[in-house]
Design a protein around this nucleic acid. Sequence first.
DNA 1: AGGGCTTTTGGAAACGCTCCCAGTAAATAC
DNA 2: GTATTTACTGGGAGCGTTTCCAAAAGCCCT
Lengths: 335, 335
Amino acid sequence: MNEKVGMREVAKRAGVAISSVSRVLTDSPDVSEVMRNRVLDAVAALGYERDLLAMSMRTGATQSIGFVAINVSNPVIATNSVGAENELSKSGYSLLISNSQGNPELDADYIKHFASRRVDGLILSITDEENPRTLEMLRAFKKPIVLIDRELPADIPAGAVLHDHASGVMPAAQHLINLGHRRIVLISGAPRVRPSRERALALKAAAKTNPDVKVTLIPGGYSEIHGYETTLKIMREPNPPTAIFVGGNQILVGVLRALRELKLKVPTDVSLVTCDDLPLAEFIDPPLARVTRDAMNVGEKAAELLLEQINGAEPRTIILPTSFAVGESCAAPKK
Amino acid sequence: MNEKVGMREVAKRAGVAISSVSRVLTDSPDVSEVMRNRVLDAVAALGYERDLLAMSMRTGATQSIGFVAINVSNPVIATNSVGAENELSKSGYSLLISNSQGNPELDADYIKHFASRRVDGLILSITDEENPRTLEMLRAFKKPIVLIDRELPADIPAGAVLHDHASGVMPAAQHLINLGHRRIVLISGAPRVRPSRERALALKAAAKTNPDVKVTLIPGGYSEIHGYETTLKIMREPNPPTAIFVGGNQILVGVLRALRELKLKVPTDVSLVTCDDLPLAEFIDPPLARVTRDAMNVGEKAAELLLEQINGAEPRTIILPTSFAVGESCAAPKK
DNA sequence: AGGGCTTTTGGAAACGCTCCCAGTAAATAC
DNA sequence: GTATTTACTGGGAGCGTTTCCAAAAGCCCT
């Protein structure tokens, strides 16, 4: 095997100019059939592979996309990334991933880093929509951006795949209220991020239908520890909530751990609704009532929107529904 | 804001040669203090960012790593990737991900693609260790490779992070045998892949301690559907197993679904042990006995080994333990 | 047969950097 | 005071492509 075959070698072997090789390989319209065959033969004979890096260098397009995520090990985000990658790879794009792990500064660092790698676009599931450095980096990034359930100031042009959280949260809240719950706590995720905001809004809106219903919001972050500590705290207070609305799948694990520790039974002692599925959520005891969304689809749609923009289209926004799956984790509160 | 500031602009502004700017930015030892400051001032004033792409072009190193994975939406793999990314980003490396989704040909395609992107190294969690095209691509890839619980022919030099599956499977098997189980089925994942192989080996070895124990292997793939269909089939046969050893977390979901459909209770009707954790495995009913491994650590170690190799070290192999967590999903079989 | 087209091809300049090589200036040696 | 080193700096080639421009080749027409 030869070490490095480049266009030069191909050109020499085919007895043509380098530029002709390039023309053939880029499917330029003005090459003769003869030329095309000679070049392709030489390419095949030498096992030549086009160097993507040099291509990018010349054309300015790297055929790569950066995915800036709050945490790829969260199954929802991971599935988003898989959906995006599937879609992107069809068009020859590669996906670079990152993990900000709840640290907004890392969002900004990654955006900057991806920019200096000249990615052709960005898919964002960032940690904080208002972090000034993040916004600054995004403003400096002049290429297509698609948000996954995030919102940015209007001066940063970006497409978005959003969820209609109300469509899932409202029926869930109504379900709890109908069962007789009056004290509901929402243990919510990162404060400055669309899903947290929308879920809180929807829950509060649902609560408005009955003046006796009191909804308390406890924002923190998408983490086990937040769910764990909050649950311990609120369930030990004098007048604990009769229902907990869990604002994220990682939070859920903490909540369950705390409830187990407190020896509280679901739904006897407290009712539970959770947002964002986990693979086993349907099998836990009791099967959880949950507000879910199709993460794979979101990733695919985000990639589609991004490719659209790369091909010159204007940024678009897609809104996808969420849905509520009743589960046995909700029951009438004991008085 | 100016559009593109390159070294040229910086050099002009600082009144020095482009090569001097480069020297300062690459921390070359022979630059005077005066020069360093002039350049750095100009860099700061212009907000210049080094172009990683052009750098790579010149130096040959892209500071990027390809992660070829069977399926990044599997929480274990996702967590591997997060571990790797965390570690790599510390050294300025980026991680490119891919999803072969159980299709060995895609493994090969991705390796090829990453090679033409000139990634500096590869982390592999491939679908099939014996796929000829995969092996061919890997042989052609002359840069560092690290395997995550995979094995390759000896002529392909590669580091590896392996699991000692026996350390978790043996006690699990022993536990089942001690409880009195004699017919155990292992619903196993992709056939030509180390974890499947090792788990089967360990289980069979454990079974040898008692001549009455019969272990049946049913390989298939790491998928819900495999778990689902296999479970339906084996539990409907005349002499169904008294214990199922589930060889992967995605398989588990299928198994549970099938058992629910068959209205079989765990552990009354059948005992269950599962491999590879899922976030909620400890909360399902009953809490599952499981063989687990630390996925985050694996990813980090893989990245470390890779960086080591990139810096000139010889490929190394690390072996990490697995462990068995007893759960209430195992009980003595009803006779 | 020669002029004006169109199609196809070759040559060379970028893309933004790094790094080798010469060259200048300062410092040391004799 | 000249020769030799040492310490920096500037110029320019080159990484592997694409792409612009001009030259060549073919074609049609009068």
